[in-house]
Nucleic acid binder design. Structure first.
Length: 673
RNA sequence: GCGCCCGUAGCUCAGCUGGAUAGAGCAUUUGGCUUCGAACCAAAGGGUCGGAGGUUCGAAUCCUUCCGGGCGCACCA
């Protein structure tokens, strides 16, 4: 509702500016005054105009205020306009009218045409997911929820995919471990998987340790380094080639680990639509089609001299500009160019990635994956790439906008892919390619010590230490979640011994997931999270459970009042609320309504900036506002029926919007806690 | 060396398309449960917004520069 009023106000003021001063401002700022007593919206537009019109800001504001006041009948919901401070235009809303509209759930819509692909998680299927992967998946899943159509907004058509690098070095390393350290064959690997399954052990945990061991093994014996490096390389080539026993072992293991990843993520309500695998990109020869296209478009060329002689290379972004600027001969070999095809004829990672991204935008002629069903969620199917797929199947490679949730260390490679698209003339695709970049999750030195690692003096002095799968150094996602559930469970057990055990566990899980997802979302993307158990295991203060608790409190009011949220909101439709809302005391109630009406605005901001943290902050602020309300007004004891109705409706609107906001964050509200 | 990111309260972080008195959580101190559940609320202390210049009516926010820290710059993936 706030956004609706904002939009109509901005349109009106633009019209006035054009008619009166013949100016158009591309970027009109609207903000909220520091105090609700000054109004609900503020426009500093007079300051901006002062320069251009050579007039005092206050004088301009006075003129604009008069114009707006005259047009008040066209501004639904606006009660008055006044000049404040050095030249602010402060807008006051008609509180009663606004409350009625908010209660009736009037709000601006969000959405549009086009298909949007969100890629996230993309964990190498050779080890357990850790907290860094959790940040990735939670960011991606939350963003996907903001985009998707639902019963609150029209939304955008969305596909969620999780890229699986099942033929890379990391999987190869685990295969080396199985074959050369454990002496496993294809058959005994099968037996191992069955045994782990039967004894309720996690294959991804098994691989976590094995991966760390084999990483050390490569360099453990000085005399064997070259030989072991060769084993590693041969294994990698065997995986890439396919159709051999080594590749079959890799497929068994990577698929088993992948299933574990899906389970882990499902514990956090994270689901996928499609799992494209590198093995199909290879066997279906995506690269061949891309290569032809790139040569045709002139972005890929063979280097004839210099250090990259005999490679096929591509210029990096900005090279043309540098050449023009420095006046170097454009015919000289570009030593800075990115190698796409090595002199031995094999393609690099970036080359494969370009092919994959051309496919995402539907720009790779004649190429698509085969599709097979892989996993069933309660409401939909997750598909996986395959060579000979089944029909019918959904299509994913036709995106109008893509979002790649990939950590900031991949900035350069991502920019290479975008540069390739742009160089090929696919400007629109390049513009609609969002590298949803985020910083890593590291461990505080204290946390590392708690986990039993010995630290060097240098590490001890750092504010954080990077996790390392290769060293087996990190916190596993399932372990953290288990700890969170245990902590929440013991709280629920003491608070609600009367509830059945199974239900207590369900509640504890909801709280644990709430704490974890909120924790990963409260930091903005480019902040390194220095992970610490003390903060992550907290259920108090700025946390998910704080918001969940506020919702539980609201629900208790309705239960005891023998009414519902919907009834409470409907009940105020015909009441005379003006006296209550406009009184001094009513201001804090009105502030709750106003904040509750901002959800659409927040979602739009999160989408525009690809920053879910704003919504997390908003959910917390709304809960804070509600808790304050809860403390100041005792709803059930209220004697005056009109006032009681308003208090009930206030609790209802706060609960409605908190629940929605949490829903977008992927957090459920427990019935009790 | 080049590129990107960060530096705000004791700690962890918001605020950064310039706007009214720089905010929150944690920690510390204090007060509040015979009340709709205290996983809560209220209050207090705590800030040269890394330093220095500049642009502007106005700078935590924009520009320049310096200092400190992180990450990335392969014919690895």
């Amino acid at each position: 509702m706030y956004r609706t009023i904002q939009q109509s106000l901005l349109a009106r003021i633009q019209a006035i500016l054009l008619a009166k001063y013949d100016v158009t401002l591309t970027n009109l700022v609207v903000e909220q005054p520091p105090n609700i007593a000054l109004g609900e919206l503020a426009l500093p537009v007079a300051f901006e105009l002062a320069k251009r019109l050579r007039k005092a800001p206050r004088a301009i504001a006075t003129e604009l205020a008069a114009e707006l006041t005259a047009a008040l009948s066209h501004l639904e919901g606006v009660a008055s306009v006044e000049v404040a401070g050095a030249g602010y235009l402060n807008i006051r809303l008609d509180r009663t009218a606004a409350v009625r509209r908010i209660a009736a759930d009037q709000h601006a819509d969000i959405g549009g045409p086009g298909f949007r692909l969100v890629e996230h998680t993309s964990i190498n299927p050779n080890k357990a997911a850790h907290i860094g992967h959790l940040r990735n998946a939670i960011l991606g899943d939350t963003f996907q929820r903001l985009l998707r159509p639902d019963n609150y907004k029209r939304g955008y058509e969305v596909g969620v995919q999780n890229y699986i690098d099942n033929t890379g070095v990391q999987v190869a390393d685990v295969v080396v471990g199985l074959v050369h350290l454990e002496g496993k064959t294809l058959d005994s690997t099968r037996e191992l998987l069955t045994e782990l399954l039967e004894t309720n052990q996690r294959i991804d945990f098994y691989c976590w340790d094995l991966y760390a061991r084999v990483s050390q093994w490569y360099t453990a014996d000085a005399g064997q380094i070259a030989a072991r490096k060769q084993i590693r390389l041969d294994t990698l080539h065997a995986l890439e080639a396919g159709n051999n026993e080594t590749a079959e072992i890799a497929d068994l293991i990577s698929t088993a680990v992948l299933r574990r990843h899906l389970d882990t993520m499902q514990r956090l309500s994270i689901e996928y639509d499609f799992l494209p695998r590198e093995s199909e990109i290879l066997t279906l020869h995506f690269w061949d089609a891309a290569r032809t296209l790139m040569i045709e478009k002139g972005v890929l060329y063979k280097e004839t001299a210099g250090k990259n002689k005999d490679c096929w290379v591509m210029r990096r972004a900005g090279t043309e500009a540098t050449i023009a600027e420095e006046g170097t001969d454009p015919n000289l070999p570009d030593e800075d160019a990115k190698v796409i095809v090595r002199s031995n004829g094999t393609v690099t990672y970036v080359g494969k990635d370009i092919a994959y991204h051309l496919w995402k935008f539907g720009l790779l002629p004649g190429k698509d994956f085969g599709y097979a069903k892989f996993h069933e969620y309660p409401t939909h199917t997750c598909w996986i790439s395959t060579v000979n797929g089944e029909t019918p199947h959904p299509f994913f490679g036709h995106a109008d906008h893509i979002y790649n949730v990939i950590d900031s260390r991949q900035n350069d490679p991502q920019n290479n892919v975008i540069a390739a698209l742009r160089g090929m003339g696919y400007t629109e695709a390049a513009d609609n390619y969002t590298h949803f970049s985020y910083e890593m999750v590291a461990l505080t030195p204290r946390c590392a010590i708690e986990l039993g690692y010995t630290l060097s003096d240098e590490d001890r002095g750092k504010s954080y230490i990077e996790v390392s799968g290769r060293k087996g150094f990190g916190v596993k996602a399932d372990d953290l979640l288990d700890q969170l559930i245990a902590a929440a469970k013991s709280e629920v057990d003491t608070r609600h011994p009367e509830i059945e055990a199974a239900e207590r566990l369900t509640i504890a899980t909801q709280i644990a997931v709430g704490a974890l997802r909120y924790f990963m979302l409260r930091f903005t993307r480019n902040t390194v999270i220095a992970f610490d158990f003390k903060d992550a295991l907290s259920f108090e203060g700025e946390t998910g459970p704080y918001v969940q608790y506020a919702i539980v409190r609201a629900a208790n009011i309705f239960r005891k009042a023998n009414t519902t949220e919907a009834e409470s909101l409907a009940a105020i439709a015909n009441l005379d609320l003006a006296n209550l809302l406009n009184a001094e005391e009513g201001s804090s109630l009105w502030e709750t309504w106003l904040l509750a009406s901002k959800l659409t605005l927040l979602i739009e901001q999160c989408i525009a900036t690809a920053e879910p943290a704003y919504l997390a902050k908003y959910a917390f602020q709304l809960a804070q506002q509600f808790n304050n309300f809860y403390h100041r007004h005792h709803v059930l004891n209220e004697a005056d029926p009109t006032r009681k109705a308003l208090l009930l409706a206030t609790a209802a609107v706060a609960q409605r919007e908190m629940t929605r906001a949490l829903g977008y964050l992927g957090i459920e509200a427990p019935p009790v806690m």
